[in-house]
Design a protein around this nucleic acid. Structure first.
Lengths: 121, 121
DNA sequence: AAACCATGACTACATCTGTAATCAGTCTTG
DNA sequence: CAAGACTGATTACAGATGTAGTCATGGTTT
């Protein structure tokens, strides 16, 4: 599975959210902040097709695009990569780190505790 | 703070581990697997200097390099970025995700529970 | 039919990255 | 001092990425 670049990821998000879509529809759903032209979105679509991250089916004279890889899998790979690189693959240091950085509220803690309890059973 | 590329990160790791170091010393400590020549390491060092991620002091006719950003901060930024992009900024889904993917052993769970308990007090 | 519009394919181009080689000094060593 | 060795600076170059523009073709509207 080839690497998906940051910008391409925005396109994947759109299609994971809803698919299949035409190029124009994808462009309409890409976050405003990107400020992309339709041409740019089309380039992204082509590259993602080439990488095998998307599939397309013809619908008349145009294409309908849909993801060819699951968001699940992509997310797993990326978070695994981060974990390995920065925390020696261990989740505990990440949690500790985020807690220190105030990325973890009391409610979060409760929630994670509940999750862990469930996992143990 | 400019983005640090994957390859450059390997150099930062070396210097976070121990610094200051000369270019040659850094090269000697970069993981074998990279198979980098000294020239490559020097390029990385220059680019990191330009990005402001490293600082150097002259030591005779050569430089001693040292990090100009804290590993802490870099790691915080990167993990925050991942969390925001993939999990809406929430840690719980990430933990749940990793658990599902068997990235979480029973021992890990114990450990995190202990950590959370400590955090609450 | 003529003019127009939408679409994918192809082309463009600057910047970033990975991966060096080469060059111009300075230090060392014979 | 001459020949190397070592160092940062400069240059190289291919592939990835961000960000489009252009072109050919086939459908649409008057």
């Amino acid at each position: 599975m080839e690497r998906i670049a940051e910008g391409e990821y925005a396109v994947m998000e759109v299609l994971w959210e809803r698919s299949p879509l035409t190029a124009a529809e994808v462009a309409a759903r890409v976050p405003e902040e990107r400020g992309w032209s339709l041409a740019t979105v089309k380039t992204m679509l082509s590259r993602l097709l080439a990488k095998g991250a998307l599939a397309h089916e013809e619908e008349g004279r145009r294409y309908l695009y849909r993801p060819a890889i699951r968001r699940e899998d992509y997310v797993a790979e990326e978070s695994g990569r981060l974990l390995d690189r920065m925390f020696g693959g261990r989740l505990t240091p990440l949690v500790a780190h985020l807690a220190e950085r105030d990325r973890l509220s009391a409610a979060d803690i409760e929630e994670i505790e509940a999750l862990l309890k469930a996992l143990k059973s």
